[in-house]
Design a protein around this nucleic acid. Sequence first.
DNA 1: TTGTAAGCGTTATCAT
DNA 2: ATGATAACGCTTACAA
Lengths: 335, 335
Amino acid sequence: MKDVAQIAGVSVSTVSRVINNNIPVDKETRLKVEEAIRQLRYKPNLLAKGLRLRSGGIIGLVVPEIIHQTFVNFIHYVEESVVDSGFELILGNTHGDPEKEERFIDSLIRRNVDGIIFSRVSDQSRVLNILEKTNIPIVIIDRFLENENIPSIVLDNYKAGLLAGQHLVQYHHRKIACITGPLNIALSRERLKGFKAALSEAGAILPDDFIYEGDFKFESGLAAVEKFLSDEIEMTAIWAQNDMMAIGALKVLNQHGIQVPEDISLMGMDNISSSEMITPALTTITQPFQEMCQKAVNVIINRKGKKELAPSRIVLEPSLIIRDSTCPLLRESVC
Amino acid sequence: MKDVAQIAGVSVSTVSRVINNNIPVDKETRLKVEEAIRQLRYKPNLLAKGLRLRSGGIIGLVVPEIIHQTFVNFIHYVEESVVDSGFELILGNTHGDPEKEERFIDSLIRRNVDGIIFSRVSDQSRVLNILEKTNIPIVIIDRFLENENIPSIVLDNYKAGLLAGQHLVQYHHRKIACITGPLNIALSRERLKGFKAALSEAGAILPDDFIYEGDFKFESGLAAVEKFLSDEIEMTAIWAQNDMMAIGALKVLNQHGIQVPEDISLMGMDNISSSEMITPALTTITQPFQEMCQKAVNVIINRKGKKELAPSRIVLEPSLIIRDSTCPLLRESVC
DNA sequence: TTGTAAGCGTTATCAT
DNA sequence: ATGATAACGCTTACAA
């Protein structure tokens, strides 16, 4: 920068003004400076700028896992929004470990990040307390926090369950099994609640042995159906609370020669890419990932500078995608 | 830092020495300083450090795409290695656009990054030239560059083709179709070359109409089989150069009532997670992603500081995973 | 409109 | 072993 100033025959402050062009600079001097910049291939250093401005030009994204479609979606769309807003993205994988969470957050703070987006903070983590002391904008995505006054972006999971239930009920199913996520996670409970509501609205009930508590992984989809079958549960449809488990369920149904959707209708949730690639393509519930991520970044950018955080909870809507894995239940059981 | 020094009754330089503990400090002073640090909850600022040291503590990862299993693997394992080595990861998605590549690289440079890992630079990009002028360690992953003396980590794609071919040949297949990636990409050509070599070793040939040039996407798997079938190609096996296309192929085969593997054996490559979830589980070729990423980070760390880059090409080996989608071809055509 | 100079928070050199 | 100080490269009062 000094060199640029020298060559252009001006002072460094003028160079700075040209670069940031927030303060009026004479046209001619500007041209001289720009020429010098080109000539020297000068690139302003971002660390120096960040140090001075107390703003690193960086947004941190914290995920508990990377190889998992949901988080891949977050990474993808958050990166997009972050870059669109002129920042860069630092990515950290915590493996759900509070200690790693803390270490990562710590270094983000020390980098003067402009904001932090968390997806699924672990409950035991102290990071939120740590962060409340700083005034770094922060937003939680995809995770409902009871008592925190921290902005968050969540899906209406009750609605998701409702949509799933309504779809199956509308197809005349009454004996429906459900494979849930871990029930100590609020989102699984919400989905289940909505699902039950849809059934009971149609006069159907969901007995306990029609519910299998999975963990959102493929294997628990397998296990769920094994269990249903060995218990001789008579069901005409299954809803798995995510596609991964639905795909597991499908695998076991196939193995037992049970046709989907002819014998049993099956639906999932998330609309992961495999869900439309498998046969039959999966009926599913989709989440507005892109919108969630954009809002998350916006919350951060809007809150920048403002001392007081206006804690907000933005709730977004899921929607139904009907494909080939569900079909109306007929007397003749023909699709 | 000044505050810490004040409270501990020492100078800032001493505080610095305590923190970095590279230079001997009296035990007692050290304790005093550490106490002061705790008391003030002092966290050294990484931007200032990076500015001073010309080393941002950051490694950049450049990918052309995020929602794609291969790059998800890279992101996952690179993040892991980067963090293990005490750095942080900045992630940039270029969408294969040379201009975005350039912008991203530019800001990495301006952040004094300690290294850059590229997966699949676009050929037209000028970034490599730009980077050659700096002495930022850089390594290319998963992409063979002809004339560059830049370190790279690649898979032995010829070997991958060979393995695929040998497996099918060993199962007595002779009429085998192949769905390739874009043939303007070296890696697709290498795979094809290896594949052909395996076939011809067994006295089989691969006629041109048994080859379909895809683009590694699901849809091109669909299109390929449609083409084969409408051309009435008589094949007993298909190799798709990645799992995505194999899954597409499977879908169309299913739609036409063709059983895999009873009627046609099918194999893919990459070992993406869906490949073992679908029915039948896909026989595939797997890449040592974790090792590739670790090596990439190591190359960067080893090269740091050294002026002269020792251009290296590290070649890693693929391996075969036999699952349910391929079976030996028998006279009776029973599996 | 432009220049001067202080300061952002470190580390490294040089004395002591 | 420790302290004073310059420097890293930028922005921004303040002065001119």
